[in-house]
């Protein structure tokens, strides 16, 4: 199986119309791809600040509920459960990881759009619409899990205002959720283009930008899952 290399950003001038008629770029790489990597670098600092704050405020809340430790009388007047739901979050983590798999398959499908598909397997793997839908739906499922998690936390008495844990937890995971939401909208926009005129190898660079963003959001979740949910 050979892949068109356009998605790897090597053909700036053939990948999209913007640079047509212009001198080739100095590095031969696509402008947008350099910009998105710089953006991802910037996002590292954004999430580093959020995660640092969460860790700094860990175990400093003066009232419950707490993430890992149940609070029982007489310490708490009413018993408070350990609030993080590891099984549910493990499931949503798995969903997000699988969405990354769907995303790489979507990109591969766009790159290979022009190649003949002989078997059913190749036809399935080569359907960009299928994999983009899959990625967006898995992303939306993750958001659903998050909505469920947030609602149940509120029912158990944890809101943004309750304590330091609530403030830093909801802000951190909320920022991540907002990134996933933007990603889903981005994927849906790509799908709209796919339905309108079909995405082909020359669009691979644009799909790749969405993919890089999507995987980065996934990677951030990998860190959050370990640091926030698993480490007690």
């Amino acid at each position: 199986m050979t892949h068109a290399s356009a998605a790897h950003g090597t053909h700036a001038h053939s990948a999209h119309d913007d640079t047509h008629g212009h001198p080739p770029t100095s590095t031969g790489l696509d402008n947008k791809k350099i910009a998105i990597w710089a953006f991802i670098g910037s996002e590292c600092m954004l999430f580093a600040s959020l995660i640092s704050t969460y860790l700094i405020y860990k175990r400093r809340s003066v009232v419950g509920p707490y993430p890992h430790d149940a609070c029982l009388p007489p310490l708490c007047s009413t018993p408070l459960p350990a609030i993080l739901d590891i099984p549910i979050t493990s499931a949503s983590t798995f969903v997000l990881l699988m969405s990354s798999l769907a995303m790489v398959l979507a990109l591969a499908a766009v790159e290979m759009k022009d190649q003949p598909k002989r078997t059913t397997g190749e036809r399935i793997l080569g359907s960009s619409k299928l994999w983009l839908w899959m990625t967006a739906l898995l992303g939306a499922t993750f958001l659903g899990f998050q909505a469920y998690e947030f609602t149940s936390f509120v029912h158990e008495g944890l809101t943004l205002r309750t304590n330091l844990f609530g403030s830093s937890f909801f802000t951190l995971t909320g920022f991540h959720g907002a990134h996933v939401t933007v990603g889903v909208l981005w994927l849906l926009s790509l799908l709209a283009i796919d339905y309108r005129r079909g995405l082909g190898p020359k669009d691979a660079i644009n799909v790749d930008l969405a993919a890089l963003y999507w995987h980065f959001v996934d990677v951030v979740w990998i860190v959050i899952f370990t640091l926030v949910y698993l480490i007690k």
Partner: peptide
């Protein structure tokens, strides 16, 4: 490209 590695 190694540039992307550096940028990240």
């Amino acid at each position: 490209h190694k540039l992307f590695r550096a940028l990240f």
